[in-house]
Amino acid sequence: MKPAAFEYHMPRTVEEAVAILARVAPLDGRVLAGGQTLVPAMALRLARPSHLVDINRVAGFDRLDVRDGMLEIGPCVRHAALDRSAAPGPLGRLLGLVQPHIAHHPIRTRGTFCGSLANADAASEWCLTAVALDARIEARSGRGTRSIPADAFLLGYMTTSLEPDELLVRARLPLLPDDARVGFYEYARRAGDFAQVMALVTYAVRGGVVAAPRIALGGLESRPRRMAGAEAAIVGRVPDALAFRSAADAAADALGPTEDPDYARTLATTAVLRALAAAA
């Protein structure tokens, strides 16, 4: 399980990184950040990039800060940094709930938030978080920088709308309002395994009823997504067991085809119910 040969590049600036990527992208060049997804794929020779652009030493890529109501996450911010202290208010609480479910400690010290998005694994907690909160993803190339909504970025199983020569230079997560409640539930076979199912919810209770709900589901389909029907089922209702149940059923109703529909339905319902209950 030794990787196939490649050429290695270690840019120090974002301009340099983008320039190298532009040159090597047509030759199946890939970006190396935390490497916790790409390097195993290379060891199994499922991935055989001819060039690797290692962005770990690009100045400023490890920046993590809050600006204009958004948490800005540089491409080399490790999972471990995204704990409760990473953002104020409910968003920090939410990150603190989600992050411990990502693989294991030594993976979290290396793997990156942006890398998770770029790899677009269906069972990635950060991809779920990104779609749930409408993250914006900034991609930079020689043609300039564009900002892509998470839902348009994550196209399917391990597929994104990133062009081969585009470097993911930042992800931005909106802060949540102070009255936002947050909940996350994940079921995996073993500690640290990819999720069989996971759900992330946030909503506020204003005037005794649910406002601004976001309900996202991951692990069952080829990509995580917000469940509009579930959100519609709960908005404006008193946040009680009955309302939660309607939301969970609506989420399950909206599932696309899966290998074992009965079990998938159960998992979807359960995850949404439990995430809602955790947020209550």
């Binding site: 073993r190 500690a191 640290g192 395994d193 990819f194």
Partner: peptide, 13 residues
């Protein structure tokens, strides 16, 4: 064919 598919119990289990 990998340790992601062949599930050996960890301490948590």
């Amino acid at each position: 064919t990998t340790f992601a598919d062949y599930l050996i119990p960890t301490l948590s289990e």
